[in-house]
Simulated assay, not measured.
Amino acid sequence: MPEPFKNLINADLVRACGEHLQRHWRGFDRRDFERQALAGLDALEMKARAMQVADALEATLPDDFDRAAGIIETALAPAATTDDLGFATTDAGLAGWIGWPLGEFIARRGQADPVRALHALRELTQRFTSEFAVRPFLINHFDLTMAQLLAWRDDPSPHVRRWTSEGSRPRLPWGLQVKSLIADPSPTLPLLRALQDDPSPYVRRSVANHLNDIAKDHPGVVADWLEAHLPKAPPERKALLRHASRTLVKRGDRLVLKAWGLGAGLKGEASLSVSPKRVAVGDSVRLVATLTSTSTRPQKLAVDYVVHHVKANGSSTPKVFKGWTLTLFPGETRRLEKAHSLRPITTRRYYEGSHRVELMVNGNLVTEAAFKLKC
């Protein structure tokens, strides 16, 4: 059985943190820090462990934030210089998962001195990402924080450049929502323009995820981005933009599909069958789609399907599932098959009733079928 994820923040890591902090500030009360940080630690989940260690840091580091930040900085391991994510606390200094409570301490205590705090986070993110710790500064000191992130977009460290994009994502998973960026993503667009051709794949992956976040609330912004930046794009940027387009391609957004050469409707015939016609929760159905071309030219097609899940009140909600991307040649008939699971998952509950399945080609409904689900 794999080790629980929460155990990445453990007693040995806490003791190593105390040792390094005391090494760089002889007045550090290591015993009190460890007493508070370790109290009932094994019973806590991951985030609660990080917060408890941050509480212990608040109780034992100097009240003067500049001094406390300086102690943390001198206790850090040497900065990572490549994309390698193998951060770990060693005899050389603090790095890896201890960075979560260290970043939390900086986020809590640094609000009165945001410039000093952001510089501390820049140092920390080269040993463990500070993407979560920067969020309160974007909420409380937006203009100052965005100006500083923009200034660091050319930083020599790929970890810092990646942090400027990842930390300012509108919908960063597990992070505080920055509602102003959800409403208006334009402040981060200059940052993304500067980073989309970054030499580091690690940085470019963050830019793709950032653009995909924007697509969820402002699809037109990403469609315009593709229009401006996809033509004659080098292979690395093209891969980035394809990853950034994934949500809108899945939704069948016409403008985005058109940008990828998938805008034309199917010239030909389509059929869809679903079997069995009656199925129980936990089983699966087999989808068989058949496409026949009547065109004299090859057709580049994105073929997806939409399942209309029945809700408790009898209505239904659509969910798009990725199917196939293919080129259909003149006169060709192509048979496509896929098993669709009906196993319960944490984000979806199934209810009895007729579930409609629509076949979408380049964002256009071409045919449909249905199955009955029994619970």
Rank of each mutant, 00 (worst) to 15 (best):
F87Y: 15
H24W: 10
D155A: 11
A208C: 01
H218V: 04
P231V: 08
L138C: 03
D253G: 08
N364F: 11
D253Q: 08
K258L: 04
L342A: 05
R135Y: 05
G110W: 02
P78R: 13
A43C: 01
L21H: 07
D283E: 15
V207F: 06
F65L: 09
E131I: 09
A120M: 09
E269F: 03
H210W: 06
S315P: 00
P199G: 13
K372I: 04
E337W: 03
P101W: 04
G268F: 03
G323A: 08
A120D: 08
L240N: 03
P298C: 00
K238Q: 09
P199I: 09
S200D: 11
R30L: 07
A289R: 04
L342D: 01
D197M: 12
A50R: 01
R109E: 04
Y351N: 14
A302V: 04
F137Q: 03
K179R: 15
M146V: 15
F128R: 09
I98F: 06
T296Q: 13
K338Q: 15
D32C: 09
V115T: 14
W97D: 05
M51Q: 15
V366Y: 05
K374W: 03
A37F: 04
V274M: 03
D29E: 15
H340Q: 12
K258H: 13
A112S: 15
H355Q: 13
G353Y: 02
P231D: 02
R122D: 09
V307H: 00
S316P: 01
L336R: 11
N10P: 02
S273M: 01
P190M: 12
F33V: 10
L326R: 07
S206G: 08
P136R: 02
H355P: 05
G86H: 13
L144V: 13
A120V: 09
R35H: 10
